[in-house]
Design a protein around this nucleic acid. Sequence first.
DNA 1: AACTGTGAAGATCTTCACAGCA
DNA 2: TGCTGTGAAGATCTTCACAGTT
Lengths: 254, 254
Amino acid sequence: MATGRTHRPATRSRGIPEATVARLPLYLRALTALSERSVPTVSSEELAAAAGVNSAKLRKDFSYLGSYGTRGVGYDVEYLVYQISRELGLTQDWPVVIVGIGNLGAALANYGGFASRGFRVAALIDADPAMAGKPVAGIPVQHSDELEKIIKDNGVSIGVIATPAGAAQPVCDRLVAAGVTSILNFAPTVLTVPDGVDVRKVDLSIELQILAFHEQRKAGEETAAGDGALPAATTRNAAGDQGPDGDVPAVMPA
Amino acid sequence: MATGRTHRPATRSRGIPEATVARLPLYLRALTALSERSVPTVSSEELAAAAGVNSAKLRKDFSYLGSYGTRGVGYDVEYLVYQISRELGLTQDWPVVIVGIGNLGAALANYGGFASRGFRVAALIDADPAMAGKPVAGIPVQHSDELEKIIKDNGVSIGVIATPAGAAQPVCDRLVAAGVTSILNFAPTVLTVPDGVDVRKVDLSIELQILAFHEQRKAGEETAAGDGALPAATTRNAAGDQGPDGDVPAVMPA
DNA sequence: AACTGTGAAGATCTTCACAGCA
DNA sequence: TGCTGTGAAGATCTTCACAGTT
């Protein structure tokens, strides 16, 4: 199996449902936009619209964080931004290393929204000696021999794997052995990690396959269906959350 | 709201649950690997291990497709590969266009697993005139003025948006107007699309934020907890499936 | 009057556990 | 005997609908 994952209640301590946690970043993004426009307050209806969810769901989600709204008025934008950031752990600094600096790794390194939210690219690592020293997004690439040292020196706990599929597991093992406990995997492989380590995957081909499934179905309906063209609009997120156990699909490999 | 999405039973016709559809690509990947090793049959237990899911779930998933296994034996690898491919619509050709050829767009264009599964990069489109004609992954980039013509000439129904956030919605609108009905969005924005159009998103910063949340929690437990270091391993997929209505998070922007 | 917070109903998804076929 | 297929129980998530607060 992918690994020694344990049945974790999926939601611990303060008990925020996993599905809710997965949406907090969306709310945060919408709130940040409002904040930049100096909007003081929003109603659940407005914010839900901006985040693309239904308002009841949003209110229920916020209710797990506490009672941060004011009846008859709505939510204070700045206050909510702070509360959600804190809940997500974004009020602290998270040094991140990206392993595998190909097009994808470079794209990730250049991604701005990165630094903006407490994440800091502590280092870029690649196995190709020819890449060593070359700056990508202003950061010099380091050779993978340095991996362990980099992780330790920077106190990195989050690693991003953007290597080819074959290199992913070995890299993962080294990251974990060096102390990384959260991994974002872009390689099209199921990673095996020990208990205590979280892995999230993003896999392009899987996303495309899911779209193809629905696309095929639409095509079938056109000709088949008798009850007129039924609506079928949907906006699924390529990132939900599967069960606490078992891996699920995701999006995009190196 | 992200858009005019309609309450669709989420699962139509043959009624394959959305959660199952999201896992089919995983099974397919594992099966393909077995097929390459010329393994003739697999048990649900073995395949589940390779795909990183629990065997009961896998059997239940397959049961929605039909009874393709043999009691006492297992599943015929080749046969299953075919059945799942067909179910996902991968037995047909899906021309895809990628809009926004920055590092990410280039990474996607270079992604191999692409062509391997019925997907064909029909065109690369970018708004920068300087990019026009330049080959990326062997395909010449075309200027966005050509977008509508490209979509129509190639019968493209799936579009990938890898542009900066600000350009995403306009690009999306043009793609949809030209006939695209499935969109994979890498820009960190909620896209609004009409009914009948599917959108899946992939957003790096959201994935990192979710990891940070769990990471923060782990840190808290270390000091807090009294019941010894509890296991907390998890492998969530950065791509699950939210409800049929409402967008959910995902992974990675341009 | 407007809008939040939430119990309760409903929908979906997961897991168990075992009947049933090869 | 070995392993699939699946009813049923359980867990999670979503949505409703309205009581409660400003």
